[in-house]
Design a binder for these strands. Structure first.
Lengths: 178, 178
DNA sequence: GGCACATCCATGCAAACGCATCGACATCGG
DNA sequence: CCGATGTCGATGCGTTTGCATGGATGTGCC
């Protein structure tokens, strides 16, 4: 998805087009690999009582300090709109896997905490999911390649914090002034 | 999402655990990088008349021979269930971007063809999206790194065809017998 | 040929999603 | 201290998604 291409626009500097093309091909490869793997994981019957996306929430919480996080913090890691995440937490809460508690430091916020039951569920599914990951990635790439892939993806993700929006307000961008 | 981990299961051979952990870390890195980039692309206002997922369909069709494909073929590239894709094609058809036509070679199937209007729309959005891709990937990775990332992702994706399901029927898997 | 089975697409329906919005609280400026 | 503005999370509502299923056509076997 979200791959561009189309014939290179005429009149652009050749070096820039080439570089754009390279970036587009890399994004397409990354995206398609992710689609193929998500498909395989979805076909695994390891998620049983919850969905893959709900597992993502439990997993993310399991890595948070004290296994709790603000809803808004969670929302930065989960590919869901804020209202959708709020309702997903509703469902996980009624299932007993997480619990909402007020944030004493900021009474606007809500802390979402992984319950013991939720933690057990995350570990149970996580073990099976880890076996699947190994099954699908292990035969495809050797250890050095896996390390290289992780390194490049981390570098790509972390760099995003330093790249402004395409429609950022230039008046408030002081990063080049100081 | 869909990252496993949890403490390494006791009693497993150390080498296997280590390898599983490496695969899991690579998958997590790949997935999180994809999430971060999808977020950025979604925030771009380049999609205007359609959605990012609908653009994915137009883009995929634009690469097909004669700009047409069977619905079922499309469904292998698009991360959507078959009924959802069917309805998305409904919407794109009423918007005039694609057209359904019967497949003369297999009367069960339906060919989805990109109309001229749909092709123009794809190119229009594609140019803007390509600029975004360059904007977000270019400063993060140099050309060699982009090439390496694409290579590893392609290798990972293409290898999936040779890796059986986790719950494959052993009776029908003849790959090891011949 | 004819019957069993597989494949392809469409549709009914409940669940989940995103957008717009609102109330509650925090923060900043006077 | 108070009002303006910004941030956080919840809810109404229309749209989109997935699951289960059905109808139609292709394929294999006797």
């Amino acid at each position: 998805m979200t791959m561009p291409t189309s014939p290179p626009p005429p009149g652009e500097p050749a070096v820039k087009v080439s570089s754009t093309r390279l970036a587009a091909e890399s994004w397409e490869a990354l995206f398609r690999a992710q689609v193929a793997l998500i498909r395989r994981f979805a076909d695994d019957d390891v998620w049983d009582p919850i969905s893959m996306r709900e597992y993502d929430v439990l997993f993310t919480l399991s890595r948070c300090p004290d296994r709790r996080a603000r809803l808004h913090e969670l929302n930065r890691e989960i590919l869901l709109s804020q209202p959708s995440l709020s309702r997903m937490v509703d469902r996980l809460e009624s299932a007993g896997f997480v619990a909402r508690e007020p944030d004493p430091a900021d009474r606007r916020g809500t802390l979402v905490r992984l319950t013991e039951e939720g933690s057990q569920m995350q570990r149970r599914i996580g073990r099976r999911h880890a076996a699947s990951i190994r099954r699908y990635l292990g035969p495809a790439l050797d250890d050095d390649e896996l390390r290289m892939l992780a390194h490049l993806c981390d570098k790509l993700r972390l760099a995003q914090a330093r790249i402004p929006d395409s429609h950022a307000d230039p008046g408030t961008d002081h990063s080049a002034l100081m």
